[in-house]
Amino acid sequence: MSEKEYLEKNELISGYIDGQLTPRQITELKRLLAHDSQCQQELEAMERQQRLLQSLPVESAPAGLTQEIQSALERQFILGGSVRHSDTVGKWGLRLRKAAAAAAMILLPLLALSAVVYTILQPTEQAPNTSSEPVAAIEKGASASPELLFSAVLQFQTNQPIAANDFIEKKIHTLGLMNFTTPARQSDRTSYKIVCSRKYVEGLVGELADLWSHSEKASYALLDTSTKQPVCVDGIDAQQALAMIRLADISTAAKLAQNISEQNTQKALVKANPADVAEPRPEKPSKPILAWDKDMQQVPADGQDTICLVIEVLGQ
């Protein structure tokens, strides 16, 4: 029997066990089976093989995969499509990612240093926005708009930017603020521009209280929409940030900023004292108001208290 005939015979057998043969092909196979004992054996072997495959244990997806998929989809939703590529699957993909992260850890400080050197050597030219000052971000990220009560930037410097970003994204999603959030990524920072009613921003900032303990420093800058005068508070804590967001007018905000700065200076002095006691953990506000609970379209037009808050995470 030629190879072609052997293949044709097996195609008939394969089609037969799947019920794909025409009546004519079935007749042909029956004729073959009647005269060829090997053909009969091949049919039996193929049927047995199919039964075996069908009886293989069905593996269920690991526990927690649903949650992982949903988290990945949420990340995808928030960041607008930069989750992972197929090149990064598997343990070798993991090593590749680790190598990339290590390379980034080396290159990013060099880039930052280059930016600083460039700024010093080229003082007359407009420096790029590599500053870690929230005022720089406020002018770029939270441009003032006449509809907004105010615009502000809350900036975190951390050595765990990935965890910080994950944490912020999760909170944004949990509170249903995705529709009001515009994320942006640069080499050294990630920002989340949130434009919505102040009460939702308050809720979010309250939920971010734990972020302070994982940050080196937090700064806050407020921009008055009418005078464009920035008010900065360096080393702000969670409660102070909440207090600043709750303020309606810039003059009160300026006074509070000054008070907070003085308080922070005093705290720094107290910390320098060996007899310093542990700072109390910032108190979380009561349950935040969830944007999910409202009709999403109604939230931005919620009275006269729409604000813009840019949350920025700096770190490499």
Binding site: E59, A61, P62, L65, I69, A72, L73, R84, G90, G93
Partner: peptide, 26 residues
């Protein structure tokens, strides 16, 4: 479950299958 099972039978490793299943949905 069906997708994971099929991918597992194709790639032969449960960790890879889980990650590929996740990537499929993304």
């Amino acid at each position: 479950d069906r997708l994971y099972n099929a991918i597992l039978k194709i790639c032969g490793n449960s960790d890879d299958a889980a990650e590929l299943t996740q990537e499929t949905f993304v």
